[in-house]
């Protein structure tokens, strides 16, 4: 089983890393990271903060782009181009395909994240700001966990809908996942039971992605404690497991 999953993951990684759209997005992010030097120069003595903020946000946007747009195409392409017709009749379980695809794309996300993070470190080195290495690594680790959840969401949708709709639905989850601050007042001070129930439903059932966002804190040298990181990791793994289960069930039933 592991061998099969690894084979699919390896193939997915190879396929997505050669995607021109991905390479173009990576190039744009590297340019943005280099551009942070200019932003820093016009920020009046807030140069390191600007580089860290814009740099980590650019990396984060790249991860989200890979998860949402590349992820939406992943299953759809195979269905439309019928490359699945060569794979599915082989001795491979459908959930192995899902897991292989998810792991492969996560590996791609990790690779482009690593490249852009190294670029950011190089820029920070020119400013002598080496104190941010660990906080930034922690930040990209947590945002990679978020990307993994979004990858699985887009895989769930791309199994039965077009890439555009899949991307739209995934973006909705992304926005809802970061709307916690807006939902909390509706939960704490509800104007009606219906609003409270809906707000609670969104807050607890949809993936709460804000916990993976420490970009706002690292610039002040604040990093979450170990317990918080472990809870975030467990949340990501369990939510990813749920999404994987849903994707496997829907894909198992799919006919071609």
């Amino acid at each position: 089983m592991l061998n099969t999953i690894f084979t699919i993951a390896q193939n997915t990684f190879r396929e997505t890393m050669r995607d021109r759209i991905l390479l173009a997005a990576l190039a744009v992010v590297l340019i943005i990271i280099a551009f942070t030097l200019f932003i820093a120069s016009i920020s009046i003595e807030q140069d390191v903060r600007m580089i860290v903020d814009f740099g980590t946000s650019a990396i984060y946007i790249l991860q989200i782009f890979v998860a949402i747009f590349i992820g939406s195409m992943l299953m759809y392409k195979e269905v439309e181009q019928k490359t699945f017709f060569l794979i599915l009749p082989k001795p491979i379980r459908r959930y192995e395909i899902i897991l292989g695809k998810a792991l492969g794309l996560t590996a791609t996300t990790f690779t482009v994240t690593l490249l852009s993070t190294l670029a950011l470190f190089a820029i920070l080195l020119t400013k002598g700001a080496t104190l941010f290495v660990v906080p930034i690594l922690l930040s990209v680790f947590l945002s990679t966990l978020e990307a993994m959840i979004l990858i699985l969401i887009s895989i769930v949708f791309s199994g039965f809908t077009s890439p555009i709709l899949s991307a739209i639905y995934t973006i909705v989850f992304f926005l809802a996942g970061h709307a916690g601050e807006s939902l909390r007042p509706l939960i704490m001070f509800p104007q009606s039971t219906v609003i409270e129930v809906v707000a609670r439903g969104i807050y607890y059932l949809l993936p709460n992605l804000e916990k993976f966002n420490i970009r706002n804190d690292i610039v002040f040298g604040d990093i979450p404690n170990a317990t918080s990181i472990i809870f975030s990791l467990l949340y990501a793994l369990f939510y990813a497991s749920l999404l994987f289960f849903v994707a496997s069930v829907t894909f198992k039933k799919k006919e071609f």
């Binding site: 016009i42 920020s43 903020d53 814009f54 970061h178 992605l209 970009r215």
Partner: peptide, 22 residues
Amino acid sequence: VKHLAFGFDNVLADYYWISAVQ
């Protein structure tokens, strides 16, 4: 503005800072 940040609060704050300076 906070409800429209969607996790990009600090970058948006930086954008406003640079805009104010400019």
